[in-house]
Design a protein around this nucleic acid. Structure first.
Lengths: 255, 255
DNA sequence: TCTCCGCATTGATCTGCATCAATACCGCAA
DNA sequence: TTGCGGTATTGATGCAGATCAATGCGGAGA
């Protein structure tokens, strides 16, 4: 049961059996962290990279007066911290949203793995570029969409990402976010998030209760959101080396 | 007169004379591009990286109905495209805002330079991480600040970045942006940008006419914007190798 | 010099979303 | 079972910023 990270990196750059073994060995320092705890504090000097094995976390920024903005979600297979430059100082914090199982890869181990395998190096580059693409999309999401579109877009993205790591149900996923979290993600007040969710429900676009998100008609939600999944298909290096990467269609991987 | 890129990379990772020479040689395919032209079209498969030598450009995204969001500005010394993974497919477009002088570095040349020098590799990593940090900040800017704060923050960032490449005057800079550009950057209508600019002027925080931005009291503007420049200080690996890196200093390694 | 065009500016009006303030609900622990 | 704390929901009201519609202005080209 290699963690999602290896599968993801493999899709990015086609790892050899050796590569996978090497990566597998990196993941040794594993721990559970309770919900609602910080994994990284802004300003810390990291000498290692975290790998999320289970659970959700988020990267956020805060300004003096308490306003908070979530700038990314971390799900299983995602890195936590900024490889592979050490020591690196991060300008955001990371907090768990659920209990999280996280592994720590020490700087030197990661660097030496990258030294030994150009495929591993390439895979980490691509992973970073993929997160970057998501970040750009978030900027655009908050900057130019309406409340309804923003939330719809967020849900489309989340489901697509979770599907890629096999964490979805047939037509939805578990969504461990409060309405406040959602608001801090898309730049809306909690109250307005609530009302917008009800609109989406009323329109039959989603169902959401008890942290279970169901999207009966993904295409419909995508249309509302103006969601174009290509930015999630890793920077689509050799775009056809594997699964149907493209636009519409079924997205992502069976695995 | 080595272009700004080399100076920047040098600050990131401390290049050797050889490194600099190698980089210098990369920059050969140079051309001028007129204002208001696309340098990169969304979906293109890049086999090279551009380097902005002179002028301004911007990365932007568009959705069907014509709404547009600027997600980044490129100024001299910035890369245009996503090194160093090729071919890479970008999910945004790049347009010139002024006439731009741009060099193209072919994929193989860049990769071989990175192969030969770990410092160069490291420098490119850090440059990418720096852009990423800016993108995160933009997400937060649009997500949680008011109109006045957003524009103030944008100006603080721009001046700080320009200063790092020596393109500022004593207390300001040239700003080749229309009010429409600014609006598409921070998620506001043109009209409201205009009014907010006037507010900032009335408050004595800025002066802006004929593309000349003057900030008489940077600290004051920074306070309004809740601007914290640390995210611009490259991931501040060796934080004290040069100019006052701002805030509290400390941390990190002399390397 | 005049004319044109893109950009900046101004006013009037509308609305999406914030804010304030209760109230309802649910899971949990005693 | 009861009570409690965090989350969701609902209503009422206010405002930041959008939208619509002119008008002004400065620079480039004839």
């Amino acid at each position: 049961m290699p963690h999602h990270l290896i599968r993801k990196l493999d899709r990015y750059a086609g790892l050899s059996a050796d590569d996978k073994e090497m990566l597998q060995r990196l993941v040794c320092d594993v721990a559970w962290v309770a919900s609602d705890h910080d994994l990284i504090d802004e300003g810390a000097a990291l000498r290692q990279v975290g790998v999320i094995l289970d659970g959700w976390a988020c990267c956020y920024k805060q300004i003096e007066d308490g306003r908070r903005q979530i700038v990314a979600y971390l799900i299983p297979g995602d890195l936590c911290g900024t490889p592979p430059v050490f020591p690196s100082i991060v300008n955001y914090s990371v907090a768990t949203l659920t209990p999280v199982r996280v592994a720590q890869i020490p700087a030197h181990a990661l660097l030496s793995a990258m030294d030994k395998s150009p495929r591993i190096t390439r895979a980490f580059w691509l992973d970073l570029l993929a997160s970057f693409a998501i970040q750009r999309e978030w900027t655009a999401n908050v900057g130019l969409r309406t409340a309804r579109e923003r939330i719809a877009h967020l849900f489309c993205e989340i489901v697509t990402r979770l599907r890629a790591v096999g964490l979805t149900t047939a037509d939805g996923c578990n969504l461990p976010l409060t309405q406040e979290d959602i608001g801090e993600t898309v730049g809306l007040s909690t109250v307005h998030v609530n009302r917008t969710l009800q609109e989406l429900r009323a329109a039959g676009l989603i169902s959401l209760k008890r942290q279970q998100l169901v999207i009966p008609d993904f295409a419909a939600l995508r249309a509302v959101a103006h969601f174009d999944s290509t930015y999630l298909c890793r920077s689509r290096l050799e775009a056809d080396a594997d699964p149907p990467p493209a636009a519409m269609a079924g997205s992502a991987v069976p695995a």
